[in-house]
Design a protein around this nucleic acid. Structure first.
Lengths: 207, 207, 207, 207
DNA sequence: TATGAATGAGTTTTCATTCAT
DNA sequence: CATGAATGAAAACTCATTCAT
C-alpha cells in the first residue's frame, strides 16, 4: 500500500513525520512544481540532504505524502452501510466529508491539485485502494436504489456530486472567502444545513 | 483591467491568439509553476523571446489568459433571470455550466488551479467582474426564495454547489475517467440526468 | 574630428540632435552598459530602428556623443594664454572649469565614466584633439614657470589637479550632496572661493 | 550593516576571498552593469551557481565588496589629528591618500564608479560610517581654522579637493597614462611633490 | 549520519540588432 | 523613411540532486 519502509527506528519515523507535515503544508499551498524541497526542509528545520536521506527524492516524498493521506478519503467511505437506513447512511457520509473539508483542508487541496495537475508517475497504482472501496460502495448504493431504499439515482454521479460539493469548501476556500458574507465561522454549519436537506430530498423514496 | 489592448495590428492579434491558445493548453495541464514559457513558445511554434515580444512576461501572459477566459464564467450567470420561471432558470444555469465543463474543460481547470494554488498578483481585481455579477444573482435568488418562487434555500451555498457539481466534471476529469464505467461519451448527459432532478427537487416549492 | 556626416538635411540633423540629447541623459546617468538604446530611443520619442537609422549602432552613437561633447573640454583650455598675466590666466581657467561642472554636469560625468570604465574602442583617436592642445598648454605653463611668471610647478600635475578639483563637483555630485550642509545653491561659488585662493597662493611667484 | 557574516567555515571564507578578489578586478574594470557574475566566476575559477552559493546575488556580492573596501577610505581619515601640528596632519592625510591611489587603484575606481553611476540600493546606509567620520574631521578642521592653527579655509572644500586631487591618479589613470611623459614610475612621487607644497602654502597661517 | 559545498540543467528575461513591409 | 516583428546570444538566477568530509 503506502511504501513506508517496514522497519524504522523511533527517531527515523519521527523525522519522517516531521517532514511529511512540512511537506503537506508546502505542497498543498504551492503545488508540486511550486514547492521546493528546500522550502520543505527549512519548514522541517533540517538540511535538504538530510531530508533526502529520509525520502530519496522529491517525487518519492510527494507520493509518500499522498499515500499517507489516502486513508482520509477511504475511511469515511468505508463507514457507509453500517446500518440499514440508506438515506441516513448517505447523509452521514456527507456530514463526514464536510467535517473533513473543515478539519483537513490542506489534505483536500493536496489531492485536488494532484488530480487537477497531476505529475506523470511511473506507478499510478496510488489510488487503487480508494478505487476498490469506491466500487464496493457504488454497488451498495445501486442495490439500495434497486431495492427502493433510496430513490432511483445513478450511484456514480451521486458520489461525484457529494465529493464535489463537500470538497469544494476546502479546495476553493480562497474564492469562498472572497464571496461569502462575513459569517465565515458558520460556513461549514451552513453548508451542512444546505446539503443535508438537498440530499434528503433527492434520496428519500417517494411512496 | 488587464484586458486585451484596444489597437492591435493584424499580426499582433493573430500571434496573441496563437500564444494564448498554447498557453491555455500548457497552463491548464501543468499549472502556473509547472508551465514554462519555453514549452508554451514551443507549442506555439516560436522562440521564447518572440513570445515575450507579445506578452511582456510570464505573469502577464497568464493573467491575460485568465481575463480572456473570464467571460466563460460570467456569461452563463448573466443569463439567469430572463424569464419568471425561477426553478427553470436555475436548472438552465446548471445545464449551461455542464456544457461548459464539456466544451471548455481546459479553461475550467485553469481557473480551478488559479483558485486552488493561486499566484500572488500585484493587481487583485481580476475576478471583480465575476464577483459583481455573483452578488447580483445572489440577490435575485434570495428574492425568489423570499417570494416563494423557489423553496427556501441559502443562495450562496446553492451557487457554490452548482459550481462544484458541474465544474467537477472538467476539473477532476482524470479521476472520473478512471472511476466511471466505459460509457464516457454519455458522461455529461448522465450528469445532467442526475443533477437536473436533484436541483428540481431541491428548488420546487412545496405547496 | 567628429565623424558627423558632412551632408545632412535639416531634418536629419535635427533628429541627430534630439537623439544625442537623449543619449547624453541616459548614458551619463547609467554608463555605457547600463544604458539601452531602447531607453534612449524612448527618451527621444522614436522607435529603436529609427534611432539606428541615424546612428548605425550603439557604439557609434556613444562615440559620436563623446566627440560632439569634446569641445567643452577643449575650448576652456584654448583660452589660456590670451593675456600675459599668467596667474590670472590659470585662475580664469579654473573659473571656467567650475562653470562647466555647474552648467554641464552630465557631459562631465559622461567623460568621467568613459575614462573610468571605458569601452574597448577600435579607433582610440577620439581624444587626440584634446591631447594636442593639452601638450601646447603644458609647454606654455612650463615656459611661464621658467620665466618666473608663475612659481615653479610641474605643469602636468597642475592641470591634473585643476581637472580633478573642478570636475569633482560634477562627477561626485551624489556624494557631495550627501555630505555638504544645506547651502547647495552656493556650492559652486564656495568652490570658487576656495579654489581661486588656493591656486593664487600656489602660483604667485615669491619675490 | 551588510558586513561579513560572523561565523564562516574555512572553505566559506576562502571562497569568499577568492570571489571578492575577482569581483574587485571585474567590477572596477567594467562597472556594475558591465560586469557579469559569469565573468567574475570565471576569473575565480568556478561556475556561476557556485559563486551564487556564496553570495546570494549579484547585488549582494557588489555591496559586500564595497563594504569590505570601505575601511580603506575610513582609516586614513581617522588618523587626522593625532598630533597638534595641524598643517602637517593634513599633509600626512594627503600623503596617505596618494599611497592609496598607488596601492589600491581598483578599490578607488570601484568607489568612483559607484558614486558616479551608482545602483539603486534597497539599503542606503553603506556609506554611513564614512560620513560619520567625515563630519568629525570637518569639525576638527573648522576648529583648527578658528584657532588659527591653519589659515582660514572652508573645511568641506578642503577635503573635497584632497579627495579629488589624490583619487584622480587612480580613477583617471587611463587618461594620465596617455598624457604624461614616460616617467610613470615616478608619477606618485611627482604628485606628492606637487600637492604637498600646494596644501602647505594653502594652509600655513600667515603671521 | 549529517552538513557544507558544488553541479548542471533549466527558467525567465534583456538587449542589440536585423528584416520585411 | 519608419515601424512592427523577430532573433540569438547572454545574463541572472533556481533547484533537484550529488559529493566529500
Amino acid at each position: 500500500m503506502t511504501s513506508k519502509p517496514a522497519n524504522l527506528t523511533r527517531i527515523q519515523s519521527e523525522r519522517r513525520d516531521e517532514i511529511l507535515s512540512s511537506a503537506l503544508e508546502i505542497f498543498s499551498k504551492n503545488g508540486y512544481k511550486g514547492a521546493s524541497i528546500n522550502k520543505i526542509a527549512q519548514a522541517a528545520n533540517m538540511s535538504t540532504p538530510r531530508l533526502l536521506y529520509h525520502f530519496s527524492d522529491k517525487e518519492k516524498l510527494y507520493s509518500d505524502l499522498l499515500s499517507s493521506t489516502l486513508s482520509l478519503w477511504i475511511d469515511p467511505l468505508e463507514f457507509i452501510g453500517q446500518t440499514d437506513d440508506a438515506v441516513e447512511e448517505i447523509c452521514n457520509y456527507v456530514r463526514r466529508k464536510i467535517e473533513m473539508s473543515r478539519d483537513y483542508p490542506r489534505e483536500s487541496r493536496l489531492f485536488a491539485s494532484e488530480i487537477l495537475i497531476g505529475i506523470e508517475r511511473a506507478d499510478d497504482s496510488l489510488f487503487d485502494p480508494l478505487h476498490q472501496i469506491f466500487r464496493d460502495k457504488i454497488e451498495l448504493i445501486q442495490r439500495w436504489s434497486n431495492e427502493g431504499k433510496i430513490a432511483p439515482v445513478d450511484p456514480y454521479h451521486l458520489i461525484y456530486s457529494i465529493w464535489a460539493t463537500t470538497q469544494h469548501y476546502a479546495d476553493f476556500d480562497v474564492q469562498i472567502r472572497t464571496l461569502s458574507p462575513q459569517k465565515m465561522e458558520n460556513l461549514f454549519d451552513d453548508a451542512e444545513a444546505f446539503l443535508i436537506p438537498m440530499y434528503t430530498k433527492l434520496l428519500t423514496p417517494s411512496r
